[in-house]
Design a protein around this nucleic acid. Structure first.
Length: 310
DNA sequence: TTAGGGTTAG
């Protein structure tokens, strides 16, 4: 049941059920713990996470590799790198997932360099790296804008034959785009053996970042023509591309299509983009009306975005 | 039958 709540994104419910089970004298095993800790990382606060760690210690389950990995991940997600590191170091058994979880935690808190160091250590240990691990290394290079290492790593991937994996390819598209090489990003995108919505989003975001709104709109049309269904991030990327290229009308047109055409309920980030767009286009009263009529009329983020356009 | 990864914004 906990697992079902977790999969459905109801980490808070999973936590409630777990606490109830404990009070009934239920003895959790490593499976239960791995699931509940992972669920807590999604929806439950850091304090509950710490509490779970305490219970894991009580039942001597924190030494289990899956429980340890879930804890490293949880601390990483909360940006508690020191805690994640401490947990990792205290584990008497580690596997590739432990390393990937730690590296990912480093990247999320802005320590891409540490993640790259971790990867080099991993290579020294002779542990086989899978595509998730490699994608994390690429993310680390993007985070610290280390294109030199990224290019070397790209060569390494060619030798390994991992280039055609969607996650790895997507990471490389993002890396080259963020380091200023839009052409290489597009070539990599074209060379991928298959795409998913995430890889399309990465390429659309690359065009947004480089202020290439028209190209982003063309790619967006191509994406739909090929039968891919846009998600919230697709819309955000295309809206951003319109903003950075001054394509006000295209942006307004897309915003009005979000719900009726794409069946997506606009989220705060969409409204932020739209306020930014209207503000930059000089349509200040329209921007103000949009904030007032949105589901977030008191959002400081929306008002701050508008003020920045003045 | 559990744990890790790839996209936006700030």
């Amino acid at each position: 049941m906990i697992l079902e709540y977790d999969k459905a994104g109801y980490g808070d419910k999973a936590f409630e059920v777990f606490v109830h089970l404990l009070s009934c004298g239920f003895e959790p095993n490593d499976y239960t713990f791995t699931n509940i800790i992972s669920a807590s990382g999604e929806n439950v606060g850091f304090e509950e996470g710490k509490q779970l760690h305490g219970v894991a210690i009580k039942y001597s389950l924190e030494r289990e590799v899956s429980v340890g990995n879930a804890l490293v991940t949880m601390y990483g997600k909360y940006g508690m790198v020191d805690e994640a590191e401490r947990m990792f170091n205290s584990m008497n058994e580690r596997n590739l997932i432990s390393w990937t979880a730690l590296m990912s935690g480093y990247v999320k808190s802005g320590h891409g360099g540490k993640a790259i160091k971790g990867f080099l250590e991993l290579l020294d240990l002779g542990i086989f790296c899978d595509s998730s691990c490699l994608a994390t290394v690429i993310e680390a290079c993007s985070e610290c804008r280390n294109l030199d290492f990224g290019v070397q790593f790209h060569g390494f991937l060619i030798k390994l034959g991992h280039l055609y994996d969607v996650s790895v390819g997507t990471g490389l598209v993002d890396l080259y785009a963020k380091c200023g090489n839009l052409k290489s990003a597009r070539m990599l995108f074209n060379g991928m053996s298959g795409h998913n919505v995430v890889s399309w989003n990465a390429m659309l975001s690359a065009y947004a970042l480089h202020g290439q709104g028209k190209k982003a709109l063309l790619l967006f049309e191509e994406m739909k023509r090929q039968g891919f269904v846009p998600d919230e991030i697709t819309i955000l990327a295309v809206l951003q591309a319109c903003i950075y290229s001054g394509l006000w009308e295209d942006g307004i047109f897309l915003f009005n299509e979000i719900e009726p055409i794409y069946g997506i309920k606009p989220i705060l980030e969409h409204f932020t983009c739209m306020v930014d767009l209207l503000g930059r286009a000089g349509l200040l009263s329209e921007a103000m009306n949009l904030i007032k009529s949105s589901p977030y009329p008191h959002s400081p983020l929306l008002w701050r975005t508008l003020v920045q356009c003045l």
